[in-house]
Nucleic acid binder design. Structure first.
Lengths: 230, 230
DNA sequence: GGCCTTAGTTGATCTGGGTCAAGGTGCTCA
DNA sequence: TGAGCACCTTGACCCAGATCAACTAAGGCC
């Protein structure tokens, strides 16, 4: 077996593959490549021609853009189980629109793009899975635009706190598995400002922060903050 | 004939319909509805359940979001020939993610969503057309995020100037068919600032502004501005 | 004609968040 | 074990763009 069981389960669960026949799934997995990335290692560069679509298995991958003068904006942080770069398949030019590097040692599966496109061509159901995925991503991007323009830094940070806590809703802890400055960039906040806002929230007894995690002490109040617009 | 020839041509050219068989196209058009909107009239509200996908025929439609306290962000200005709300089809919930109102007296065709989905189910080619469209929209949204976070107001305005001029590349005139404050909101700039930046560019002999249009006097210089980061 | 109302401009002033600078703290690697 | 480095924090200051306010100009409409 090319991949371990855990990897196969994550792949099978991905919205990319959910609608595939087992035989199709196996065919894709057969030609898939496993990438083992060191911390900071580049997976692809913005502008590179696309020939694979990726699913993250372990670690974190940051997708980001750069200005000519080196400023960086982290567009997304990819967690295990999530796919990325799928939507690029359908764009003229087929170039990755962002850079991708591993934030921690990471393992990522690369799916052959041409072959995946053939699978899509073979089944409307698979297409619908893809369209659902793309639609959710668009909605997410729209929310990003909304938050960047209509809301301030504190608001964005609080939203992130509420959305990032471990899926279990009784759990009010956010693990800081990626450096704070990366989260800051994801939220379009400078590290200094990020640090100050966290401190202010902690002073108000809303959260408590340490090196490994952030605890939400007063979820109701945090939710109120974003409801009434800070 | 339900729609005039001009309308049918615009519909047929839309990426939504390009891959449809003539019979499918006709079936959709048969059940489509024509909306004649007055200036300021609402087409749909954010949160409304989706039952139609739209193609703008005449006039301009603004898509926007509101904060609880009434601040508005114009997400997009839809020009004749463009479709909107297609991607919502594939989202759980199926609610419009933005408000839509006419900026001028406008005519818009509403396509039955359920019926359109059936057409998609019947043909992978039509699905690929849709995925191409969605992919382009996502890329556009990603660029929006990029511009909002990595670039300043002047940069965004200049980009808009260069992209908004009449498709003819020898034409260096931008028609101001929508109020300036709407364009400003589209660019996430306040009207006062928008006005000041235009004035500054005009003082530098880069553009000239009057009530109906903006002329680009020095395209090369404007392009240089966005290349070297203002 | 007179009178709202809406859009736009311009000036004066304010401020959220960025920038710059100076430590602190812990990791890695020799 | 300590030099080097990356990350984070904190303070002082700054600035692009927002806000506030006053004014002009151009419709629509009785």
């Amino acid at each position: 077996m090319k991949f371990d069981n855990h990897t196969l389960i994550l792949l099978r669960r991905s919205p990319l593959f959910r609608a595939l026949e087992p035989s199709q799934f196996n065919a894709l997995v057969d030609t898939a490549r496993l990438y083992t990335l060191n911390e900071g290692e580049l997976l692809f560069r913005q502008g590179d021609p696309l020939n694979e679509v990726f699913v993250n298995i372990k670690g974190f991958v940051k997708l980001f853009r750069l200005t000519p003068n080196g400023d960086e904006k982290v567009v997304d942080i990819i967690v295990p189980g999530s796919s990325f770069a799928e939507a690029v398949l359908f764009m003229g030019g087929r170039q990755y629109p962002v850079h991708a590097v591993a934030l921690k040692p990471a393992t990522v599966v690369g799916i052959n793009a041409v072959q995946y496109e053939q699978m899509l061509r073979s089944s409307v159901d698979v297409c619908f899975g893809m369209m659902g995925l793309m639609s959710r991503r668009m909605h997410w991007l729209l929310n990003e635009v909304d938050r960047l323009t209509l809301h301030n830094a504190t608001f964005r940070l609080v939203i992130w706190l509420l959305e990032a806590r471990c899926s279990d809703p009784t759990c009010n802890r956010i693990a800081l598995d990626v450096p704070k400055h990366v989260v800051a960039s994801r939220l379009s906040i400078k590290p200094e400002t990020f640090s100050r806002i966290l401190k202010r929230l902690a002073n108000h007894q809303l959260i408590s922060v340490n090196d490994q995690h952030i605890d939400l002490l007063d979820v109701a109040m945090l939710e109120e903050m974003i409801r009434v617009e800070l």
